[in-house]
Design a protein around this nucleic acid. Structure first.
Lengths: 293, 293
DNA sequence: GGAGCGACATAAGCGTCCGTGATGGCGAGT
DNA sequence: ACTCGCCATCACGGACGCTTATGTCGCTCC
């Protein structure tokens, strides 16, 4: 299970072709074929169907492991390179859409900043692999419980903002008048599925813990990142949305009712490589310092 | 960053010797020396001091990454081997001490069971690497929030028991009469540090979120796994202990007061490899089925 | 239905890299 | 100062991996 072999394996699966993968990796087709053969003989089972080229069930499993492994390998290399690299003068920040608020943006240094807008799950990856010097991720969690992030590498997370959650309903919705809502009241409702702009529904499903049969039916799916659009969709009755309170307010036709049970908050966290090389100075420290104040 | 090189690297660090590592790995000393040299030249910085052999700061970082990487590699191999291996007839269960209760033990099949008592953090590792077919881990978390486990491999976790938490105090303690306790009332108290038997203090520290200055000073450290002993120590005034309510009761001289804030529970979860090869039958399924009932 | 073509498998050749054994340098203990 | 233990370096032999070339299979086109 040489990383080289794994790298070609994932490339072959991604491109669904040995020859394409060979071109992509700068190998000959023969080499790719031998790589796959080596993996299959090492593990003792077929990983791919040929014609069409697609992973077998075992291959699917390997794909998960290989992805994590290669990611971690990149992260390790990036982490070690920080020891030798020249101190950064510019700052690359990876951020999920909802993590960018007036407050967090204000903390960015005036110059030399590149902002990478990424989906939530890519932010830790970007920081780990060194594509970004710091990350801002948002998500929901129990109060004073850190966000649940994939641990691709040792990262240190510190909360920089915390806000109540609100359910966005059309004004005329029967529940719109309530002072607060319980999630249990809403299990049978139709929800907007907006992984990029809103709060991910699968997280709610996990919190609720109920069987897959009931609860949190996705309705319209929205893959944009604009919260205002999401609120507009909710106002139009296309489904409910869950947003941080401040983002949920101020849209005509939409009412935001805060969520009271389960006790969850929308939190934004700053992500930096852990065990930080004592960078008491530099753009990252400057940014972190301003955020904590 | 070949895994072979990483494996030699961690071995060298563990044994603090090139020659010992060579013997351990079945290489010559020369090969080990070259492995380390290759790593160092690849990464462009020294990883070890020689005489004595010890990791540099950069080497320490690499060690973390290498450990995770090699673990994940073993997990991947073990996971893939499940596809080819013969269906299990016996059952190996890894369990943290507090996860073993009358209820969980009763769910074990009558015969063919090997029980591995492991510290909490080793349980997921054992399941991932195939040393165990299933795991039982306990820990504390917010209600209806999964336990926070290191993700060495895709594992599926399902709650099998949940219990309130209790603080164990000497009978004569000023707070012993209270109906319930808040953690905030106890930040300045002295705690028993019992990572194996009790609830880990560092988790509390994280939940409390306070600066390292205040809070949760460890007193006596107890590395045994017996909760009764822990309660006896608490009764003797050597420090407070946090235990699941049932384990905290019934020790003369000790009073158990349940914890009311923050809202945390002691939960035990069953761990099995995720994406399970549809084992509707077999010892693992039998065990899981009995636990869920 | 046969020829052609695209795509993966297999075979042979060759360079490179890896591990061995021998030797050298260096520090610590006697 | 000598010696022993330990790591570094060197030179060599073999194995492994990649390339070129060729084989085989399946699909498509006429």
């Amino acid at each position: 299970m040489d990383p080289h072999l794994l790298r070609t394996y994932v490339t072959v699966v991604r491109l669904a072709s040995f020859s394409e993968a060979a071109r992509d990796l700068g190998y000959t087709q023969s080499a790719v074929s031998q790589h796959i053969a080596a993996l299959e003989s090492d593990l003792g089972l077929p990983l791919l169907t040929r014609r069409p080229v697609a992973p077998t069930p075992a291959g699917e499993r390997l794909l998960e492991h290989a992805g994590a492994l290669l990611l971690r390998l990149d992260a390790a290399r990036a982490d070690l390179e920080r020891f030798t690299a020249a101190p950064r003068t510019t700052l690359d920040v990876a951020a999920s859409p909802l993590a960018l608020t007036a407050r967090t943006v204000a903390a960015l240094p005036a110059t030399g900043v590149t902002l990478h807008a990424l989906p939530r799950e890519r932010v830790p990856v970007a920081v780990a692999t060194g594509e970004a010097d710091a990350g801002l991720v948002d998500g929901i969690a129990a109060p004073s419980d850190p966000l649940r992030l994939p641990d691709v590498a040792p990262l240190s997370a510190t909360a920089v903002a915390e806000e109540p959650l609100a359910v966005v309903l059309p004004d005329h919705h029967p529940l719109a008048g309530r002072p607060g809502l319980r999630l249990d009241d809403l299990v049978d409702a139709r929800w907007l599925d907006a992984p990029a702009a809103g709060v991910p529904l699968d997280r709610l499903r996990a919190v609720h813990g109920g069987p897959a049969g009931r609860g949190f039916r996705p309705g319209l799916r929205y893959d944009g990142t604009d919260t205002r659009t999401l609120a507009v969709l909710a106002a139009a009755g296309r489904g409910l949305a869950l947003l941080p309170l401040s983002a949920a307010q101020g849209v005509p036709g939409a009412t935001a009712v805060s969520l009271v049970a389960p006790r969850l908050v929308h939190r934004t966290e700053l992500l930096v490589p852990a065990g930080a090389h004592p960078e008491a100075t530099g753009p990252v420290a400057e940014f972190a310092g301003r955020l904590k104040r």
